[in-house]
């Protein structure tokens, strides 16, 4: 008998012929408490993880805010995944030929090497969905391949208000590979004190668009 057959045979012997049916009670809360402002809660919970959260009321303000973040953080090279809206980048001086505020936009097409990602100052993405209650961003395939939001040291994420849900059970299905991000990289390994910034991006900037 090969290992597969033997493990399966052991399981069948352990369970016996009569198997009780187990029902999963799903009476846990699917909705946030009534009256919850999910976008405000999301902003508050992400800030709790010491992410840099900024609210932009109208979509037309995103480009200005992105430009401001890029200047404030001194970003000179910005990774942009395929499919990221160009309109959000109009506040970034990506065309000027080496001016003082010039930012090199590094589009992942053709794919950037890992060394190029490691050498980039930041990455900007959207998110597929977000959870208010836990302050979680969900990144799926539409946000680019996973290495893009991992290797650069700063991640700027544009979150449209309509993508924010209240609770984890309300999350829409996001096909894998997917990454849930709740705040910047962190560790609690030294005396259980939370330290932000280990291997993933040490700075997470979240731009919440709309209300």
């Amino acid at each position: 008998m090969d290992a597969r057959e033997e493990v399966l045979a052991r399981i069948r012997a352990a369970l016996g012929p009569r198997r009780e049916r187990v029902e999963v009670p799903r009476d846990y809360h699917r909705q946030p408490p009534e009256g919850t402002d999910v976008v405000a809660l999301f902003a508050e919970r992400v800030a709790d993880y010491r992410a840099d959260v900024r609210r932009v009321t109208a979509a037309c303000g995103v480009a200005d805010e992105v430009g401001r973040v890029v200047r404030e953080l001194g970003i000179r090279s910005l990774v942009v995944p395929v499919g990221f809206p160009d309109a959000y980048l109009s506040g970034v001086d990506g065309d000027g030929a080496g001016g003082r505020d010039h930012v090199e936009l590094r589009r992942d097409d053709p794919p950037l090497s890992t060394a190029q990602l490691d050498d980039s100052d930041a990455v900007i993405t959207e998110c597929a969905a977000a959870v208010a209650e836990t302050g979680t961003l969900v990144l799926g395939r539409d946000q680019g391949r996973r290495a893009l939001t991992l290797v650069p040291d700063r991640h700027i994420c544009v979150v449209r208000a309509e993508r924010v849900v209240g609770t984890v059970p309300q999350l829409p299905a996001v096909p894998p590979p997917a990454t849930w991000v709740s705040g910047p990289s962190a560790t609690s390994d030294i005396e259980l004190h939370r330290v932000e910034g280990v291997h993933g991006p040490r700075t997470l900037v979240v731009l919440v668009v709309g209300c």
Binding site: T134, T136, R146, P177, A178, T179, S182, G183, S188
Partner: peptide, 20 residues
């Protein structure tokens, strides 16, 4: 860890061309 959510959760299925 006593957190509402841990910083990173990765979900993957088999292999994905061009990613990972």
């Amino acid at each position: 860890t006593g957190e509402r959510m841990n910083p990173y959760t990765s979900l993957w299925r088999g292999t994905t061309p061009g990613d990972g």
